[in-house]
Nucleic acid binder design. Structure first.
Length: 916
RNA sequence: GGGCGGAUAGCUCAGUUGGGAGAGCGCUGCCCUUACAAGGCAGAGGUCACAGGUUCGAUCCCUGUUCCGCCUACCA
């Protein structure tokens, strides 16, 4: 064939866009559920529809693509199902900002119009991340793209909600929940991030009712909540206070008195003053304590404005006049200062100390959350968690790395009911309706015109709006205004995307999916809930393996964030260094249990790797003209047999590592093979054959070269899809695209211990020659003469296979001589396995440097041999150590002795030269 | 507070049944050798955090200490 011209450097931009398009157009990624081969399926963790590809996605998606491409090439019936998440709060925020910029507001548009705006936004901007995913080369079946709010998935959400409600696993209740004052919605427990902050511990005097000159000291970090106090608790066995239980204290700033109760759960005698105020409507512990003691719950905060509310304060707390007029309308922060001031005016504030505490913040907007009493929808999680625990315990789901199993189990065993209602507009509206007539007419919120629904009104839960109220027959039904937590629909993802509740062929073929690839951050948000829902509604786990990869951090190990400015933008990197380089970098750094610290220099290094591969192919093309012949292995040259043996080893290792999700090891092995074995040694070894067009080994070697190249392209393809496809197309091959070729399989006939042994002789000897050249200041271009003496006539054949390569790579010519004719000017005598190679020395030599160096090596060798002898001489070692260990040590000692004599003889010769 | 993980070369890390301490990047020297200077060759650099223990022998196993991460948690 005619030689093929490649550019001198690899230009990813010229290649990537073409192939990512071509692959999709030709339908290579399309799944065929009817295909008889063993299925392999992955559902992608759906990125937020508002998102753009960040480096965390790039890692997550690259690993999945490696698995999918690898399995596809192995002939499995693969499906990688893509999609996006409607991301309730995040998306609503984005569109709301847009609306505000136009001078309108969410409220002024009204719910229906606003949601219409979100859909419009999604139609125009929602595809950003999908396009970027295609750019990354992700081999998803794009025809099956799903969205958590599309029709099929919404149907699944309704089905699940109604069924759980009917089974009593979804309920409505008035509970304390986490409230984000900025997003104006309830959050689930895990949507709250805890952060250690320095706060203040206030100690307040609560006067005793029977004798106001005496008081109880009460400690709190949030003095503003004191207006909602309904009791003070002390430890029942605390001798300081237990006589006070049952008596009352006067709540400062108010005219109310509250009881003193004994509570051993809430109170830690050692902490603070040993007396705790109880505010059931604003603290989780206090809520529970309130239930134990049947305390009333006084709410002081307006849920929608997050301000102290006049009506609630005034009605419930009976405040003294200065407080009653000073507080309403203040935020909790301002109220805290005001309360502090009012208390000290009354001499009720004893001390203020600094205090370390954990503050809960909204995971979306980092606003401090407020425990708030309100009516919400919950999933009763216990009955769902139990089978999900069992599935992991009995190994039906494997978590990798295993160290996360305990984390998962611990969390699941202590799981709390899941608050699923959100007071926002964008999302799956809760399929519950209320009868206006039964309710006696709805109240509307002053702030946003929401219906204010009473807990006493029983909801009608159904998949669609009922015609009329089953109680009274009225048609005036109002739907619950809340929407479901975004993670509710994501929890159904593995089966809702495959067509559930319909029994589709996709569901039958691809569920359970093979593996879920995810970061640790959504183990509880998402993974645990998918397991629960999958088991509940499919009766089967949603995936066999859960592979948890690390978080990507910056080079200093810090979390990447826009505000810190340390974000590495994958699109920038792809543009600068190529997509393959980014993918390979991420794969090579994906060690389990450790975060990925990404620095741009690493990516540059793998850009160079891509270029190295490119140039290896370019080199091959220069010499591929001429006949090729496939010889039996035994008739191939030493370098050919050696590289095939190494390739076989590499194929085996890569496959084993991929099977255990060790992307880091798989990619390192590939790197090592391509660069340091194939390029550094093999290509150098075969140059004499290729560069002489008449060389008798030419046809065989050209054939091996093509074979190695073609195989390594397939081997590398899951990691570096673009460059491998591009190069594969240029070398002799069968088929249309590398995407659908078979993945290389272990070929035992290629393994050759003999060839590897011969190569190691070549390598060792060449290394000695090279070291000698540097030692002697011999320029690389200068040819030298190798005098080869035959010490042992049985080694002639060995010499014939090794010496020509040594001479080629050591840049010299060979002369066979008798042992007795050894040149007098020889400096180094290199010994390996009975071969003797002398380098003829003439010209300037830096003798002093050479002597220093040999001295140093000598002392190291002596130290080492002493150490080893010490071990060997130990009687217990000989009696206890396994025989192979002893043999190994003997071999090592023998080898050392050989080097030892070599160095001594060289040194003697040096000294005699110095003496001249 | 509880749990998990980490500490190995200047940096980032690998080191899987306890027996020779490794890679990449960076650094130094030489080389623009007809695939590649985004390259080649050679080299320097480590008390494997600290202290004990088990063992003939410990980077590896055990105990404790220090430091650093992460997860989790309602000490007011």
């Amino acid at each position: 064939m005619a030689s093929f011209q490649l550019d001198k450097t690899y230009d990813p931009k010229a290649v990537e866009a073409r192939w990512s398009q071509e692959w999709i157009t030709r339908g290579y990624f399309r799944a065929s559920p009817e295909h008889p081969s063993q299925p392999y399926s992955i559902v992608i963790p759906p990125p937020n529809v508002t998102g753009s590809l960040h480096v965390g996605h790039a890692l997550n998606h690259s690993l999945q693509d490696i698995l999918i491409r690898w399995r596809r090439m192995q002939g499995r019936n693969t499906l990688w199902l893509p999609g996006t998440d409607h991301a309730g709060i995040a998306t609503q925020n984005v569109v709301e900002k847009q609306v505000l910029a136009e001078g309108a507001s969410r409220e002024s548009l009204g719910r229906e119009q606003f949601i219409e705006r979100v859909w419009q936004w999604k139609a125009t901007s929602g595809n950003t991340i999908v396009n970027q995913q295609k750019q990354l080369g992700e081999s998803c079946d794009w025809d099956r793209l799903r969205f958590t709010m599309d029709e099929g998935l919404s149907k699944a959400v309704l089905e699940v909600f109604v069924r759980l409600y009917e089974e009593g696993l979804i309920y409505r209740g008035e509970r304390l929940i986490n409230w984000c004052p900025r997003c104006l919605t309830a959050l689930s427990d895990i949507e709250v991030e805890h952060e250690d902050v320095k706060g203040q511990l206030y100690t307040i005097r609560y006067p005793l009712e029977e004798d106001p000159s005496q008081y109880l000291l009460v400690a709190t970090t949030r003095p503003e909540t004191m207006l909602g106090d309904t009791a003070v608790a002390v430890h029942p066995e605390d001798p300081r206070y237990n006589r006070l239980i049952g008596k009352r204290v006067l709540l400062p700033l108010t005219t109310r008195t509250i009881p003193i109760v004994g509570d051993s759960i809430l109170v830690d005698r050692e902490f603070g003053t040993g007396a705790v105020k109880i505010t059931p409507a604003h603290d989780f512990n206090d809520f529970e304590a309130g239930e134990r003691h049947q305390l009333s719950r006084i709410r002081i905060l307006d849920i929608h404005a997050n301000l102290l509310n006049e009506s609630e304060l005034g009605l419930a707390t009976r405040m003294i006049p200065q407080a009653a007029t000073a507080l309403p309308g203040l935020s909790t922060q301002k109220a805290r200062l005001k309360i502090e001031q009012l208390l000290s005016n009354q001499d009720a504030l004893a001390t203020v100390e600094s205090h370390k505490m954990a503050l809960g913040k909204c995971y979306r907007c980092k606003t401090v959350v407020e425990p708030y009493l309100s009516i919400q929808w919950f999933v009763k999680i216990g009955p769902l968690a139990e089978p999900a625990i069992k599935a992991v315990e009995d190994g039906r789901i494997r978590i990798i790395p295993e160290s996360w199993v305990n984390n998962y189990l611990g969390w699941m065993r202590d799981i709390k009911d899941w608050c699923i209602s959100r007071q926002i507009w964008w999302g799956h509206q809760i399929p519950a309706w209320y009868c206006e007539r039964c309710h006696g007419g709805f109240l509307r919120s002053k702030h946003d015109n929401r219906p204010l629904i009473d807990l006493d009104v029983p909801p009608i839960v159904a998949k669609s709006k009922p015609e009329k109220c089953p109680q009274c027959g009225s048609g005036n039904l109002v739907q619950d205004p809340d929407v479901l937590d975004t993670w509710f629909s994501s929890a159904l993802w593995p089966f809702s995307t495959l067509g559930w509740p319909d029994q589709t062929i996709e569901l039958k073929t691809y569920y359970p999916t093979s593996v879920l690839v995810t970061g640790l951050d959504i183990l509880f948000f998402w993974v645990a809930r998918m397991i629960m829902m999958g088991l509940k509604f499919m009766g089967e786990v949603p995936f066999r393996d859960v592979y948890i990869h690390a978080l990507v951090r910056d080079a200093e190990g810090k979390k990447m964030s826009k505000s810190k400015g340390n974000v590495i933008d994958p699109l920038h990197v792809m543009n600068e260094y190529g997509t393959d380089a980014l993918r390979f970098t991420l794969a090579s750094m994906a060690s389990p249990g450790r975060d990925v610290k990404l620095a741009e220099e690493r990516i540059e290094g793998y850009r160079n790797f891509a270029n190295k591969i490119w140039n290896a192919a370019r080199f091959a093309h220069m010499y591929l003209d001429g006949p090729r012949v496939t010889l039996p292995i035994s008739q191939r040259t030493v370098p050919d047999r050696w590289i095939l043996s190494r390739l076989n080893h590499t194929i085996k290792t890569v496959t084993v590592e991929l099977e255990s999700y060790r992307f880091d090891r798989a990619s390192n092995v590939l790197y090592q093979f391509m660069w340091h074995e194939f390029c550094d040694w093999y290509l150098e070894l075969i140059k004499p054959v290729l560069q002489n067009s008449d060389h008798p080994d030419g046809p065989g070697t050209r054939n091996t070269l093509v074979q190695i190249l073609e195989t390594t392209m397939r081997l590398l393809h899951p990691f570096m899809p673009f460059i491998t496809e591009e190069l594969w197309q240029t070398i002799p091959h069968d088929g249309h695209s590398i995407v659908s070729q078979a993945y290389p399989m272990e070929e035992p006939s290629w393994a050759s211990r003999e060839a590897e042994h011969l190569f190691s002789l070549i390598e060792q000897t060449v290394n000695l020659v090279r070291t000698g050249r540097v030692l002697l200041n011999y320029p690389p271009a200068q040819q030298i003469t190798f005098y080869v003496a035959h010490e042992d006539s049985t080694k002639h054949d060995l010499l014939g296979q090794v010496i020509p390569h040594v001479a080629h790579l050591g840049r010299g010519t060979v002369e066979n001589i008798e042992r007795s004719a050894w040149p007098t000017q020889q400096l180094l005598r290199l010994v390996a396995e009975g071969l003797s190679v002398g380098i003829n020395v003439s010209g300037e030599v830096d003798l002093q440097k050479a002597v220093d160096r040999l001295d140093k090596q000598l002392s190291e060798v002596e130290k080492e041999s002493q150490r080893l002898s010490g071990k060997l001489n130990h009687a217990d070692f000989v009696s206890k150590a396994p025989p192979e260990v002893i043999a190994d040590h003997k071999d090592r000692l023998r080898a050392l002795a050989q080097d030892h004599s070599m160095l001594i003889s060289s040194e003697q010769q040096l000294q005699s030269m110095l003496g001249q």
